[in-house]
Amino acid sequence: MLGIIAAVLFFIAFLINAADIATNDVFTSVNFMLIGLMLLALHVAGIGSGWAARGRRR
């Protein structure tokens, strides 16, 4: 789930950069890319990937 959100944020950052949209200091393309990278790192680390099935071994 976090990987999908990261991809959406990367796409928004690309649109802001490609269309040369003037935004304030909070919603810059660099900030969207950094948030996307953070979410991608959390996804790769296994955070937010769902519940792991923990069964008993016999």
Rank of each mutant, 00 (worst) to 15 (best):
V30I: 09
I47Q: 09
H43C: 01
W51V: 07
L9I: 02
L9F: 05
V8R: 12
S29M: 13
R58I: 01
R56M: 02
A13K: 01
M33T: 12
I12K: 12
I47V: 15
M1F: 12
L37E: 08
A53G: 00
V8C: 00
I4L: 11
R54Y: 14
S49N: 14
M38I: 15
L34H: 02
G50Y: 00
R54K: 15
I47C: 11
I16Q: 10
W51D: 05
A6H: 03
T28A: 02
D25S: 13
V8D: 03
R54M: 15
S29A: 15
L34K: 10
F32Y: 10
V30W: 11
I12S: 07
A53V: 05
F14L: 14
F32D: 01
L2A: 12
N24T: 08
I4N: 05
A22E: 15
M38R: 10
A53M: 06
G3F: 04
F14Q: 10
G48W: 01
G3H: 11
T23F: 02
L9W: 00
G46C: 03
F11I: 01
R54W: 14
I16A: 06
I21A: 04
G46R: 08
G50E: 05
D20V: 11
A45T: 15
I4Q: 10
M33D: 09
G3C: 05
M1C: 04
A22Q: 15
L2Y: 12
F27Y: 14
A7R: 05
F14M: 15
G46D: 07
A41T: 06
N24W: 03
A7S: 08
G50C: 04
A18S: 11
A53N: 07
I12N: 05
L2C: 09
A13N: 04
L42R: 03
A6D: 04
T23K: 14
L42A: 04
L40W: 10
L39N: 07
R57W: 11
A52I: 05
N24C: 10
W51H: 11
I35M: 05
R58L: 10
A52S: 11
V26F: 11
M1L: 09
L34G: 00
G48Q: 03
L15E: 07
I5W: 12
R56E: 02
A41G: 05
T23E: 06
D25H: 07
G55A: 15
R56G: 04
N24G: 14
R54S: 12
A45M: 14
A6Y: 00
L39R: 09
S29P: 09
N17L: 13
L34V: 02
A18Y: 08
S29T: 10
A45R: 15
L15F: 09
A22R: 13
A7N: 04
G46H: 05
A13L: 04
L37H: 00
V26G: 01
F10A: 05
N24M: 10
L2K: 12
R58M: 06
N31A: 05
T23I: 07
D20M: 11
I16R: 13
